[in-house]
């Protein structure tokens, strides 16, 4: 055996031993890292063995093969074209060809219809959330109702409409701003807050990630996905990043028990934009 062949032989031997080791590891309950290392040796041994064998123990002289143009000769192309045309009488049967064509087109169009079954008409669903009923209590993740003093100053609480916790279009952020922060309500929304608590949709108007990071000091809400930043003190207007619209605001009020309720739906459709959002 040449030294190269000995290297190959050793590699195959290592692979074989690793296979046995892999079986033992598995048998004894498995262990991810050991399995990976064994598999590495099993396949690596075979690969290394074959390559070093191929490099040094098989003939590898360079040979030259002719290469011809890919295209058929003009002559045979014309011959075949003539044969195809001779056996087809298509150009003499205009009407028939037209009808066959329209039959295929109609079949294609008809076969598109089952695609319609894949999902409901988008309709108005995108424009409403469960809050649309009006007068719903807001609840935490665990279904607890929220009193105004449950939200600490500078604090943030994620809530949903009662009975719809985890509805994907309804997560809402309750934020209590500080008295010394200059909160500027939008026109017509002067009475949408309760004791300094303002409620916005938690879904970013960019691509719908939850806007989770509140920088209380500056009153800015940041979306961790693409860094859109909203000014909580100014109607959640986007001040940085790709989002182009303010976060929709929820009109808050309190009921007789002092629990926070939503008087109606958000000020505009929540989440990312779509073609006829404004219609």
């Amino acid at each position: 055996m040449s030294s190269r062949e000995r290297v190959a032989a050793l590699a195959f031997a290592v692979s074989t031993i690793a296979s046995v080791a892999l079986a033992v590891v598995y048998w004894r309950g498995g262990q991810t890292q050991l399995e990976g290392v064994c598999l590495f040796l099993v396949t690596g041994g075979i690969g290394f063995g074959i390559v070093s064998w191929a490099k040094h123990a098989t003939p590898h002289d360079e040979v030259t093969e002719e290469r011809h143009s890919v295209a058929s000769s003009e002559e045979s192309f014309e011959e075949v074209a003539a044969e195809v045309e001779a056996s087809a009488t298509l150009d003499r049967r205009r009407l028939l060809v037209g009808l066959a064509g329209s039959a295929f087109a109609a079949m294609g169009a008809a076969l598109l219809f089952p695609i319609r079954s894949l999902g409901p008409r988008p309709g108005k669903d995108l424009k409403h959330t469960p809050y649309a009923g009006g007068g719903m209590r807001v609840v935490t993740e665990d279904g607890e109702t929220v009193h105004a003093n449950d939200v600490p100053v500078d604090g943030v609480l994620t809530v949903w409409p009662e009975g719809h916790t985890h509805a994907a279009d309804a997560p809402t952020l309750l934020i209590r701003t500080r008295g010394d922060q200059h909160f500027r309500p939008r026109a017509g929304r002067e009475d949408w807050t309760v004791g300094g608590i303002v409620a916005y949709s938690k879904l970013c108007t960019h691509v719908g990630c939850p806007v989770g990071l509140y920088q209380a000091e500056s009153g800015l809400l940041l979306c961790p996905c693409h860094q859109s930043t909203f000014d909580v003190l100014d109607g959640a207007r986007p001040v940085f990043g790709p989002a182009a619209r303010s976060l929709p605001q929820l009109p808050l009020a309190v009921n007789n028990e002092g629990e926070l309720i939503a008087r109606g739906d958000f000020s505009s459709p929540v989440g990312p934009g779509f073609w006829d959002r404004g219609r």
Partner: peptide, 18 residues
Amino acid sequence: KAIGLFFLTASVLCLLGG
């Protein structure tokens, strides 16, 4: 060489996966 390369590719992936 090609077969060897396949096994070597697989071995790198196995090591990473492990």
